[in-house]
Design a protein around this nucleic acid. Structure first.
Lengths: 255, 255
DNA sequence: CCGCGTGGGCGTACGGCGTACGGCCGCGTT
DNA sequence: AACGCGGCCGTACGCCGTACGCCCACGCGG
C-alpha cells in the first residue's frame, strides 16, 4: 500500500537535499556514491519497472553498494522520491513560444503530458504536498510567464495553471493505466474488455443501465481503445482552454 | 509503497464478487462473516484512518476473527478495495434535478466532491482500471442521463463526464492533501508554510523566479490557506462548464 | 611523520505487510 | 450414524523500510 510522507518532519533536511546545499568536502570527493548518482539510478528503475519496483535494496543493488549506504546520502525513501520528482521537472523544456497565451498554454499542457509519459511513476508519487525544489520553482515560474500578461489576477493565474495541469494529470493517468494494465496482464485493452464483457452481460439483467450500455460500448469501440485516452485529453484540453477564454475575454472587456 | 493489482487475473472471480453472485447456502446462513460485513469494516477503517491503516490484519481484528478468515470471502486485498469502491458509489444520491444540463452537471460535480470528502481513501485507491461493479454502472448511467439530450454524440458525452469528474478528483485530491498533511504533521497549512518559508528564502537567491514568488505568495495568502482548494474547485468547475457550453452551443447551431 | 577523529560504507535485525498452505472441527446431507 | 465439505485460522515465508552500531581509511593537527 502507498505510504510516503511519515518522515519529512524536518524541513531543513528535506529542503537542503532538494536544493543540494552541501558543498562537497575534500573527504567526499572520491566517494562512490552521491545524491545525484542515487537519484539517477532510482529514476531509471522507476521509469523501466514502475514505482512498485523502486525499493531501497534495488537502488543500492543497481549502484553496487550495500542497502544502507544509500541512507548516507538520503534520509529516507520519501525524500528520495521528492528529489526524483524535482529532478524530472528539471528535464522539461522551457522554450520561448511565439503566439498568444492559448498557444503557449496548449504547449505547456503537451509538455506536461510528455513528462508523465516519460515518467509514469510521477502520477502515483506526486500525492503529497508539492516538493518545493528549485526545478519545480523554475517550472512554475515559466508556466506562469505564459499567461502573465492576459489580464488575470495573480490568484486567477494560479487557478488557471492548476486547472490545466490537473486535466493533464487526469488524462495522463488514464493513459498510463491502459499501458500498465497491458504490461501486467499481457492483454491489450481490447482483449481485456472482450474477456470481461461476457461475464458482465451475464450479471447485467437486460435493460438495466440503458444509457450506460449504449454510451459505454460506443465510447469503447468507436475509438477502438488505446486511442481513447488521447481523445479524452484533446477533448478536455480544448474545453478547458475555451472556458479560460471566457474569463480572459471578460477581463479584456472590463479594462 | 502502493501496489494493488497483481491478482485480478481471474475476471470471473472478481466480477462475481462485485456483483455478489453467490446465493447464500444453507450452510453459510449462521456464519459470523460475510462479504458485506468485511467491506463495511474495511470502509470504516479507511474512512477513519486512511488507506495506509487498512491492512488485512486490521480488518480481521475489527471483526474479531483470525486474519486468514477474511480470505474465505475475498480473494485478496485488491479485490476488497474494489468492492469498497463500488460500495461507496452505491451510497451516492441520484436525485432528479430540475433545470438545464449545466445545473445538473454542476450538481453531479458537487456530489462527487462530497463523495471524495467522505471517503478520501478513494482518491488513492482508484488508480487501476474502473471497477465495473453494479453501483459504478448505476452511477455512470445516472450521470450520463444528465446530458443525454443536449445534442452531443455518445463519445462526446463520455468525454464530458470524464472531464468534469477528472477535475473534481484533482480538486478533491488537493483538498485532501491539506487535510491529511495537517493530521500527520500536526500543523495547519499556514503553519507548515511558515516553517518552510525562511528556509526557502535562504536557498532562493533574490530575484530568481520573480513571477513565481509574486504569484505564489499572492495565491497563498489571499485566500489564507484551507480555503485555497475550494477556490480552485469552484474556479475550475466554472471554466470547465463554460468550455462545455461552447460545444453544446455549436451542436445546437448545427442542428 | 604519526596518531586520531570523523565520516563513508554496510551487516544484522526488527517489526509489519500480503498471503500460501494445511489442518481442525462442526454442521448438513445421505 | 457416517461422511465430507466449507468456515475458520495458526504458522510461516518472502518481501518491505529502516534503526543501530561496527569497521575502516583517509585527511588533518601536532
Amino acid at each position: 500500500m502507498a505510504s510516503e510522507r511519515k518522515t519529512s518532519a524536518d524541513p531543513a533536511r528535506s529542503l537542503a537535499l532538494l536544493w543540494r546545499t552541501r558543498e562537497p568536502t575534500s573527504r567526499s570527493a572520491g566517494t562512490a556514491l552521491s545524491v545525484d548518482r542515487i537519484v539517477r539510478a532510482a529514476i531509471d528503475i522507476a521509469d523501466a519497472e514502475g514505482l512498485d519496483a523502486l525499493t531501497m535494496r534495488r537502488v543500492a543493488e543497481a549502484l553496487g553498494v550495500g542497502t544502507m549506504s544509500v541512507y548516507t546520502y538520503v534520509p529516507g525513501k520519501a525524500e528520495l522520491v521528492a528529489v526524483m520528482i524535482d529532478t524530472a521537472y528539471g528535464e522539461m523544456p522551457r522554450p520561448v513560444v511565439e503566439g498568444d497565451w492559448r498557444t503557449r498554454l496548449e504547449r505547456i499542457a503537451r509538455d506536461n503530458l510528455a513528462l508523465y509519459q516519460r515518467h509514469p511513476w510521477m502520477l502515483r508519487a506526486e500525492t503529497t504536498r508539492p516538493v518545493l525544489g528549485p526545478h519545480l520553482m523554475a517550472k512554475y515560474d515559466y508556466e506562469l510567464s505564459a499567461i502573465v500578461d492576459v489580464g488575470l489576477t495573480d490568484v486567477e493565474m494560479d487557478a488557471v495553471l492548476t486547472l490545466v495541469l490537473g486535466h493533464v494529470k487526469s488524462a495522463a493517468r488514464a493513459a498510463s493505466e491502459v499501458v500498465d494494465l497491458e504490461r501486467e496482464t499481457g492483454m491489450t485493452d481490447g482483449q481485456w474488455w472482450q474477456s470481461h464483457a461476457p461475464w458482465l452481460e451475464t450479471f447485467m439483467t437486460a435493460g438495466a443501465y440503458p444509457i450506460a450500455s449504449r454510451v459505454g460500448t460506443a465510447a469503447g469501440q468507436q475509438h477502438g481503445a488505446a486511442y481513447g485516452p488521447e481523445y479524452a485529453f484533446e477533448f478536455g484540453l480544448h474545453r478547458v482552454l475555451d472556458g479560460i477564454s471566457v474569463v480572459v475575454a471578460e477581463r479584456a472587456a472590463n479594462r
